[in-house]
Simulated assay, not measured.
Amino acid sequence: MAFEDLKAELALLINQMENQPEDSHELYMQVREKLNEMRAFGMPLPEDLVRLEEELEASFAAEQETKKG
């Protein structure tokens, strides 16, 4: 997949995330998948999306900890 195609897909995912916060887990997984594709191809990663991925992952991990205890 071309770099420009990946960038366009990521932009679409971000837009969906902003418009449909109830699906944040699914969108997080899609963002993560696209970033992993970019990593696999050795493409540069947009810092803001990497930061978003990390923040969402931390948020979901905190959610899980709250449910456990």
Rank of each mutant, 00 (worst) to 15 (best):
M1Y: 04
A2M: 09
E4T: 14
D5P: 03
L6W: 02
L6S: 13
L6T: 04
K7Q: 15
A8Q: 15
A8S: 13
L10F: 08
L10H: 01
A11I: 08
L12M: 08
L12W: 12
L13P: 13
L13W: 12
I14R: 11
I14M: 14
N15S: 13
N15K: 14
N15V: 05
Q16S: 06
M17L: 15
E18T: 14
N19K: 08
N19T: 14
Q20N: 13
Q20E: 15
Q20P: 06
P21M: 02
P21S: 10
E22C: 04
D23S: 13
S24P: 00
H25N: 07
E26N: 13
L27A: 00
Y28R: 05
M29H: 01
M29A: 04
Q30R: 10
V31I: 15
R32A: 07
R32F: 01
K34P: 14
K34C: 05
L35I: 08
N36Y: 01
E37W: 00
E37P: 00
E37G: 00
R39D: 11
F41Y: 14
F41H: 13
F41E: 15
F41K: 14
G42I: 02
G42R: 04
M43H: 09
M43P: 03
P44D: 14
P44W: 00
P44G: 10
P44Y: 00
P46Q: 05
P46G: 07
E47T: 08
V50D: 11
V50S: 10
V50F: 00
R51E: 14
E57F: 03
F60H: 03
F60N: 01
A61Y: 01
A62T: 04
A62W: 03
Q64K: 02
Q64N: 03
Q64G: 00
E65A: 07
K67Y: 03
K68S: 06
K68F: 09
G69H: 00
